[in-house]
Design a binder for these strands. Structure first.
Lengths: 363, 363
DNA sequence: GTTGGCACTCTCTCTTTTCGAGTGCTAATA
DNA sequence: TATTAGCACTCGAAAAGAGAGAGTGCCAAC
């Protein structure tokens, strides 16, 4: 059921204007500013029909029109134009992306912060879950009571930890364990590290002090942590910029939902894992009750190792979809270029050398 | 200039009540509920004097009394009673502290989250800056193009990173570098890693491929990062629970100040590093303009390695100082027990084995 | 199918009124 | 001298009322 070209134009104008001003849009205003060659009366007729069709609604009888979720949907699908950036803007965006990713690091926390800054809406970033294996195990003997475990995972990340023991170990034992773990624990997933395997390794190493289980425990912990999807939300407070969240209670509800982890994306994740397109969820299209009158825009990026990360923006249904979608697309593309396992490496190989450091603490 | 016992009692009652209700407190209400044996007229006289002395003020002529910052100060210093927890409450608090610190980890992010949850105010945590040195360097040869750097720092944390090279290295070189770094780079602080040192190490290792500088760069980065104070704010949105922040603009101002790093504590840090007491900064006592009408409560805890961490709570001047101070004290004590370099180790040595893992990524 | 005109509706804003909590003061009381 | 009861007064907050204006729907004309 398609609608006339003029209706589309009018609808687009209404949505654009409403996004800009957050005020219901009247026929007179459209006639004067939207540049469609007809009078306000004509537009009134069209508007009335658009209301009947469900694309618009009026807050009350004598107010302008406001888009319904269905209206936004139409706008997002067909009407809004892809925002093109000028050369300067591209430069500027790239600059920010670069500096941000350098001074902070490329963890999801900084990605989400960046997305929020760029769009001025709350943003959240998460990494997809992906099965992970151990590629290599090294044990570094420090002293009789101390050694360091270094694990290299299938995604080429390195995790390490210092272990301090109440009992003393000799260097031979450490070497033996190292060899055994490298042959027995590499290439397998977390759930393949069974008590049985641990037991047999322990026996083979002649380990009576429980070293094996300490190492195995760290392996399991590391794998599960590396494989688990992690989410990070930032810029919740930017919600308060939006007039629809001037009600502190409403704002608070959504903000605590977001801070509480915001499990908004998973349901859409399936859809997204392969698509490189930006997805929009408008108001009631969201599954979470807390988001029923908000909108979410999501983009996915190639995070390397056949993994995709997600960046999402949350805001009122009256969101600047066009701008947000463009920015997310840009950001996702930039991240993919940087992190992705794609063909051409980004300019400057040296960049790839300094990637990220680990953190580990013991005392 | 001390004031009469009765005045103190009345002041305490006013503050208590105002903290509870956020409404100006009237004489009649006090006479009926505060349990001081006199009539509302008497209290009116006393209140008038308390106003004259600067401890209270009235929003307008015919309203109840509200504490001034000076009034709060008096309350905090002399009047409020230390909140004692019942056995069950202690249990409950300990339980939460334990589970939280286990399921998440003991990073400052989770500490601040916990503090915020416990108090229902925004919280921030930060670690004190402390000069750091490298204790040990290991280089693990992976393949011709790849090796892993493992650094053990003076606080016994371990950081690691995978380096992927465009050129190939032989195992000998890696061993040579490892030895050189262990002799030349251990025990020195970040700023002692001079270009000169790097240059000479490079020459000694006969390294023409810039490996030395890659490793040195990582060392510098790691040290500066480990030594730098890090801050983490969480629960900003809980501000919206407070009636004084029902104005979205006001709330937004403070929230973005907090999110933006919230450099609230440093000035007080000096005072605190040694003290184990809880510090309170009331309204105008804060230096930051954004906090002039908010209060901050800070506690410090022993974070091990002769380092102290700080936990702080931010809220309106009408803050429940007593409850917040008690909770922070409890939390700080718990953290000190867990992380501190104190004498008796916490129950369960095994706990100390599994402390934290590192994270590192390359692709 | 489009347009100008016009009466009508409804919200928003501003002003006015009312209400009541809380005060300060005074005079009586212990 | 300290306390108390009583009372007139003040001032803000909430309720009620009055316009004003924006925007509509509909009708008749083009």
């Amino acid at each position: 059921m398609s609608i006339s070209e003029r209706k589309k134009k009018i609808l687009a104008a209404v949505v654009d204007e409403y996004i800009r001003t957050a005020e219901p849009v009247g026929s007179k205003h459209l006639a004067e500013n939207a540049g469609l060659g007809c009078s306000s009366a004509t537009i009134r007729n069209e508007l009335a029909e658009l209301v009947a069709l469900g694309y618009l609604e009026q807050p009350h009888t004598s107010a302008g029109r406001v888009p319904t979720p269905m209206g936004y949907r139409m706008y997002v699908n067909e009407l809004m134009q892809q925002q093109k950036y000028s050369l300067e803007e591209t430069e500027e965006l790239n600059r920010r992306l670069n500096t941000k990713l350098q001074e902070l690091d490329d963890t999801i926390s900084s990605i989400s912060r960046l997305a929020s800054q760029l769009t001025d809406y709350p943003a959240l970033a998460l990494t997809a879950a992906s099965p992970m294996t151990i590629k290599r195990v090294d044990l570094i003997y420090v002293d009789a009571n101390t050694f360091i475990i270094v694990l290299m995972l299938s995604n080429n990340s390195v995790k390490s930890k210092l272990v301090h023991l109440p009992v003393s170990v000799d260097q031979m034992m450490v070497q033996r364990l190292s060899a055994l773990f490298n042959s027995g624990f590499t290439g397998i997933t977390e759930d393949q590290i069974t008590p049985l395997l641990i037991r047999s390794t322990e026996r083979a190493a002649d380990d009576s002090m429980g070293l094996t289980s300490v190492i195995a425990a760290f392996a399991i912990e590391t794998l599960s942590e590396a494989a688990a999807p992690t989410a990070f939300v930032s810029g919740e407070n930017r919600l308060l910029n939006q007039p629809e969240f001037r009600d502190p209670d409403k704002a608070h509800r959504l903000m605590s939902y977001l801070s509480g982890g915001g499990y908004i994306l998973p349901p859409a994740e399936g859809d997204l894992t392969d698509s490189s397109e930006v997805r929009v969820l408008i108001g009631p299209e969201n599954i979470a009750e807390e988001l029923k009158d908000s909108s979410v825009v999501i983009a996915s990026y190639d995070a390397g190792d056949n993994t995709r990360g997600l960046i999402g923006i949350v805001g009122p249904t009256r969101m600047d979809y066009s701008a947000v979608a463009s920015k997310l697309r840009f950001l996702a593309a930039g991240l993919s270029r940087r992190l992705g396992s794609g063909d051409a490496p980004p300019e400057g190989m040296h960049n790839k050398l300094i990637i990220k450091k680990s953190e580990d603490r013991d005392k």
